[in-house]
């Protein structure tokens, strides 16, 4: 069943997003989990909350699908869309840093490496990207006028 796949996908993505979101929040409060360096987790309350929201959307979808509600797939799709939006945001942030380095040649950015701007919101997005590619047929919207 295709819905079974989606349920497991949503469950996995949901847990990951909630987990990483919580870690970002915890990090902001100065609690060291020791994972920050390894997983490139910044201290960021609001960014973390956003990841938790995305995770919650996925988990809600998993819950609905598990109880046999077909509309549960909607949550999976919207979760994917939201995580792609956030991935785009983090890509733009890298873009802004690149502009600082090469165009403005800002002195504060002399030490900047691309790894400094990589965030969970960015690399977790690849999971959703895979989901998007797998079910892309369903993501059909007309273009605005």
């Amino acid at each position: 069943m295709a819905n079974k796949n989606k349920m497991f996908f949503a469950l996995a993505a949901g847990i990951l997003y909630v987990l990483f979101g919580c870690m970002q929040i915890v990090e902001q409060f100065g609690i060291k989990t020791g994972l920050a360096e390894l997983l490139l987790i910044p201290g960021d309350i609001f960014g973390g909350l956003c990841l938790v929201v995305i995770g919650a959307v996925f988990l809600y979808g998993a819950k609905e699908l598990n109880s046999g509600m077909n509309m549960g797939v909607s949550y999976v799709y919207v979760g994917i869309l939201m995580s792609l939006v956030f991935m785009a945001v983090y890509v733009l942030i890298i873009g802004a840093s690149l502009l600082e380095v090469y165009l403005i040649q800002n002195e504060d950015y002399l030490e900047w490496r691309i790894i400094d701007d990589i965030r969970p919101g960015l690399y977790l997005g690849f999971l959703s990207l895979a989901g998007y590619v797998a079910w892309r047929g369903r993501f059909s919207l007309p273009a605005a006028k």
Partner: peptide, 26 residues
């Protein structure tokens, strides 16, 4: 439609406002 599916989620009783705030933050 896909539009209906999105609406179903973004107007969810519990998730609607958090989703909205996340989009604003982005």
């Amino acid at each position: 439609t896909f539009s209906d599916m999105i609406d179903h989620v973004v107007t969810n009783k519990y998730l609607g406002i958090p989703i909205f705030l996340s989009m604003m933050w982005a």
